[in-house]
Amino acid sequence: MAITEKNKHNTDNEKGLVFHIIHGSFVDGYGIRTTVFLKGCPLRCAWCCNPEGQASYPELKYTIKDCNNCGRCIDVCPKNAIKVNPLLEKVQIDRKLCDNCGACIGVCYTGSLQYFGTYYTVDELFDIIKKDEQYYRSSGGGVTIGGGEPTFQPDFTYAFMKKCQENYIHVAVDTCGYATTEEQFRILAEANLLLYDLKSLDPNAHTKNTGVSNEIILSNLKMLNGMGKSIIIRIPVIPRLTVTNENMEIIAAFLSRLKSLERVDLLAYHTYGTIKYEQLGRKYKLSTQANIQELTEKTKRIFERYGLNVQLGG
């Protein structure tokens, strides 16, 4: 994968790279949850709403509206990647030259240049999530490890998950299922709950839309189903790409054969991630005119006909 060539920051195996923590989420599993978003993902889904979760190193986040065009960053950039855009009276970053070294962040007074991604040790992260323990207890909630893809930092995620579990905190892992190694798979095997993303049953479409084949994902799913894991399948409803009138029944039939499936969540396409693409200097390419709500509700009806427990939203 191309991204590993820039992976020079992640040398410290003791630490995990986290890009967001939410205290008190009502989604991403049962009860009230604290969701930890880990950076790094093997997939490149066209609709991805957390693009800052894809690369496994800290990335420069540039919020153009906060820039006051002071130019200090231009002077310190060792790669000469920053220039003034005279039209906007803001700086602009050449992402081809930028290696995310962070020199500019150190001199940015406005906060328009920051990092996506902070390193935590297992203990540091645990101390943060355990504060909400009373809320987990009363609501049947816990920690959700999402991302990015949690298995992409296998040692850290496993150690963090175990630390939670040793302290009787429920752990849900929100995964794309693309676990290729033993270290990665054991995270899925030992999580208390899996939020398992399913994008497509068609291997060609899957490769086209996510960058990887679904072969491993499906075989892992079958294996975990065989192990009797608690599984919630999450399907992003992206018109033409994941759910279509033609494949709804096929997916439903497939899912209805999974014995340890507890629920299917249909996650309707949205564009909340657009701002983060801008902050990364990327473009969000996907757009659709389709009626998402109609498609989502139709999918729900068909799934329910197959006896599936369906929820709209996560």
Partner: peptide
């Protein structure tokens, strides 16, 4: 949105109770 369905309302309630009891 946080009151969108029954399950979320239950979560909201448990959040409220936990705050009051802690």
């Amino acid at each position: 949105d946080v009151f969108a369905d029954e399950k979320k309302k239950v979560k909201f309630l448990s959040m409220l109770r936990t705050y009051c009891e802690s």
